[in-house]
């Protein structure tokens, strides 16, 4: 399937090297122009300098914290939230530019804990992830009519980085143009949640 990504400039922000590499490989295979960064700071300027524009932003949430919210500290929670705050301007400024061309994609990759809230899960990561899910759904109202799709992928620690990267590529594609505010659980049916 031609995903229509040839020549699209995609910014991939992921702290983990394997995520950056697998996502870049999958998107490059589709002919996308990829810039992979460890964090959001300066990343938008870099991709604009290199490719002249940005058509898609992929953000992998990296926060890790205490397993239980009962043992979390205020500082842990604030630090986790700071990762959400840190990427918002990048998503917003990228969306402003995408709106001028009536085409754009925002994809966030989050831990599956966001939905499952299992006993051994990372509660702090869930809190940050839930914030990003809420943001993505709220952003839809603002950007969907400008041809910009904001969607999310939930993955477990067992999810293969390359499979997640392929799902990211699909969400960036033309074919995913009517998906707005959707959350894909990439967890091998681990989550028993109905909705």
């Amino acid at each position: 399937m031609d995903l229509g990504l040839s020549g699209k400039a995609i910014l991939v922000i992921a702290a983990d090297e394997r995520d950056r590499e697998s996502c870049s490989a999958s998107l490059t295979d589709e002919g996308a122009l990829v810039l992979a960064a460890q964090g959001p700071e300066g990343a938008l300027e870099q991709i604009r300098t290199r490719y002249g524009q940005v058509d898609g932003v992929v953000f992998y949430l990296s926060v890790h914290g205490d397993h239980s919210v009962l043992t979390a500290t205020t500082q842990t929670l604030l630090t986790a939230w700071e990762e959400v705050v840190g990427v918002i301007d990048t998503l917003r400024l990228a969306a402003e530019e995408m709106a001028t061309r009536q085409w754009g994609r925002l994809v966030t990759v989050l831990p599956s804990e966001v939905k499952s809230l299992h006993e051994d899960d990372d509660d702090v990561a869930s809190i940050a992830g839930l914030g990003l899910l809420g943001l993505q759904k709220a952003a839809v109202a603002d950007v969907a009519s400008s041809g910009i799709c904001a969607n999310a992928i939930l993955r477990t620690t067992q999810s293969s980085p390359s499979e997640v990267a392929d799902a990211v590529a699909f969400l960036l594609s033309d074919g995913a143009g009517y998906l707005h505010g959707v959350t894909l659980s990439f967890d091998g049916a681990q989550s028993a949640s109905m909705f």
């Binding site: 919210v69 009962l70 809420g134 709220a138």
Partner: peptide, 25 residues
């Protein structure tokens, strides 16, 4: 469920995190 007619991006972003906190607790 954010409401398109009432664009309140700040509570739309933070309140899901509060809901998650309460479910964890």
């Amino acid at each position: 469920e954010p409401m398109k007619e009432l664009p309140h991006v700040l509570p739309n972003t933070v309140r899901p995190a509060v809901a998650g906190l309460y479910r964890m607790l």
